[in-house]
Nucleic acid binder design. Structure first.
Length: 566
RNA sequence: GGGCCCGUAGCUCAGUCUGGUUAGAGCAUCGGCCUUUUAAGCCGAGAGUCGCGGGUUCAAAUCCCGUCGGGCCCGCCA
């Protein structure tokens, strides 16, 4: 085993088990990039040697960044993180003048391990069967896997600029793409076992094989237990296998399979390695749980280099997204789906969230969406040179961050805070009324009309779905506010009541009249407005008074003003 | 027992790799201005022992060591 030091490339070849620092800053000297993906690109391009071997790196005709997804589960925004971040590295490589590609692999040979909620029909008997052999319970696709994959691809397309090359593990195995690697792994079985055992408490049993066949009798992939490998074929028996919650029932069949001809797949610790070698992967993202020595990443890395002769990819380790401080999970009921996201925010905003520092836990909550928008708008202004930052490198970083968050042409900076959009959305519904309001409030820019309207629409959805507390709600009782009104304010409210009861008035008429009545009542305009908001909303401020009052139920308003003026 | 990440203003964070003027931003808060943009705009203010303790240095949020708190991970399987 080699553990020599490779100087100057940002990598130390480490003995197995030694920690890998993921501080986000490669150890290379002279790195000038400020953005993490550009640094990754530098790391990828600057690498000269294998990690576990003292061997020169092969030529990369192009740099492949891989992302993949197990598709047994539901697609939530957390799962987009790996692909979005991988894509950023591809873009960084391209910007550095390299050829680079993003590939996306559907792990559709993986067994069905659980049945997500809301799946119709009876799939219990398919537990343990490859998801690509499990029927589509919705009946619209050729398999359970196909159903989910098509959804993945469609959704990913909305969040990506670089179109990924798509692969299916099922197809790859069928086409024999993995045959050379399976062959190599089996030829070097002793070495594979040695590497795996280094990280295990209990050594693997004799007869173990990295290849698991699909049971020729029942079609499950998880139940066949390999008992012997005779150098050419694996001999197995189909036995029960327990997942966390479900049990895959083995059928008891005993048989043999040829790893180079028959259906089956590699075990995860070796399959990942084979994937890297097969696609000549230069880099891949992985959750921070893989950073730890002995994790599947490092086991595969060592197999990849020492057995398959291909250098491990440069890892893109990242922290996971938290939702309101908790892990996103179906059992907690806080799962956010991409469709849900797109109702209230553009894909750029999610890209923005994911392109910020890698190794920092990102906590998202619907309530904080306006903050994310504000931050995004700020960075947009920096990008467009409308705002300057003291620290030059930080400014450079923000510009790059914005650029990477874009899909196609960079979006203009919108001069409309999301929380204000949320207000406008509740007061006006027609296009004309919204635009008129934005003009009045100085948030209008002619060239950005469509973008502004879109933001108002996002904000409307957000209030309805995720921010009920932002809904404008009328004060039920005057009890708490009556004493806070001065005699002048009451007089003003009486005058307003008197004037309004004479007939219907438009918002603008009311707006203008308020100032006159305030003067007449001997109260300063700001205090008059304050009185209005107090007796209607119970708060000292509110939306532009004229249109607001005009939008209220007339009878309710007159009654309220009369009572308040008493 | 071990590893990785995070800990900077009430909140969300930037700045840490490459040490260097009084540590920044947004939001929130508070104050002022506005007879017509009243949840807006403009002006201003308060607010931080940069988790804590050592060390290196002329100089530390930044580098090193230790420590505390939070998160994640360290059988098997994927």
């Amino acid at each position: 085993m080699s553990s020599s030091t490779v100087a100057g490339c940002g990598w130390r070849t480490t003995p197995a088990g030694e920690a890998y620092s993921t501080s986000g800053y490669p150890r290379s000297r002279g790195s000038m990039a400020v953005f993490w993906a550009d640094r990754k690109a530098e790391e990828i391009r600057g690498r000269r040697k294998f990690h576990y071997l003292d061997r020169e790196l092969p030529e990369f005709e192009r740099y492949v960044v891989k992302s993949s997804a197990s598709i047994s589960g539901v697609l939530h925004i957390g799962r987009l993180s790996d692909t979005i971040r991988g894509e950023s590295v591809v873009r960084a490589l391209r910007d550095a003048g390299e050829e680079a590609a993003l590939i996306w692999v559907a792990e559709d040979m993986d067994p069905l391990r659980k049945i997500p909620e809301g799946v119709p029909g009876e799939l219990e008997e398919y537990i343990g069967t490859p998801v690509s052999s499990t029927p589509d319970p919705w009946g619209c696709h050729s398999s359970y896997a196909e159903h989910h994959v098509s959804e993945y691809l469609e959704v990913m397309g909305e969040f990506l600029e670089v179109e990924p090359e798509r692969y299916s593990m099922r197809e790859e195995y069928r086409r024999g793409s993995f045959r050379p690697y399976i062959k190599k792994l089996l030829e070097n079985l002793e070495l594979v076992v040695e590497i795996l055992n280094k990280y295990r408490k209990e050594p693997l049993e004799g007869g173990w094989s990295p290849f698991t066949p699909v049971c020729k009798s029942c079609g499950r992939i998880i139940t066949p237990r390999v008992e012997r490998f005779d150098g050419r074929k694996v001999h197995y028996r189909c036995r029960d296998y327990s997942f966390e919650k479900h049990i895959a029932r083995g059928c008891g069949y005993e048989g043999e399979a040829d790893p180079l001809r028959d259906e089956g797949k590699l075990m995860w610790k070796s399959e990942w390695a084979a994937q890297w070698a097969r696609w000549r992967v230069a880099s891949e993202g992985a959750g921070k749980e893989y950073v730890v020595p002995g994790s599947a990443w490092w086991v595969n890395a060592e197999i990849c280099e020492r057995v398959l002769g291909f250098p491990m990819p440069v890892p893109i380790f990242y922290e996971h997204l938290m939702v309101a401080g908790e892990k996103m999970s179906a059992s907690l009921g806080n799962v956010i789906y991409p469709r849900e996201w797109l109702r209230v925010a553009p894909p750029q905003l999610l890209r923005f969230l994911y392109n910020k520092k890698l190794m920092k836990t990102r906590s998202f909550s619907w309530r904080e969406l306006p903050k994310l928008y504000d931050e995004y708008d700020y960075v947009a202004r920096v990008y467009h040179g409308m705002e300057s930052v003291d620290n030059e490198r930080e400014e450079e970083h923000l510009r790059r961050l914005y650029e990477m968050s874009q899909i196609g042409e960079p979006q203009p900076a919108l001069p409309l805070p999301f929380s204000h959009a949320a207000l406008v959305a509740q007061l006006f519904s027609s296009r004309e009324a919204i635009l008129a309001s934005l003009k009045r409030s100085g948030h209008y820019v002619e060239e950005l009309e469509e973008e502004l309207l879109r933001r108002v629409a996002y904000a409307r959805e957000w209030v309805v779905r995720h921010a009920p507390e932002r809904k404008l709600s009328l004060l039920e009782s005057l009890d708490d506010v009556r004493d806070t009104l001065s005699p002048e304010q009451r007089r003003f409210l009486r005058l307003l009541h008197e004037w309004l009861s004479q007939g219907e008035r438009s918002g603008e008429e009311i707006q203008e009249k308020i100032f006159l009545l305030a003067e007449e009542a001997g109260v300063k305009a700001p205090l008059a407005f304050r009185a209005i908001y107090l007796v209607t909303l119970g708060s000292p401020r509110g939306p532009r008074a004229g249109p607001f009052l005009a939008s209220l139920d007339r009878d309710w308003l007159l009654t309220r003003l009369r009572e308040a003026g008493e």
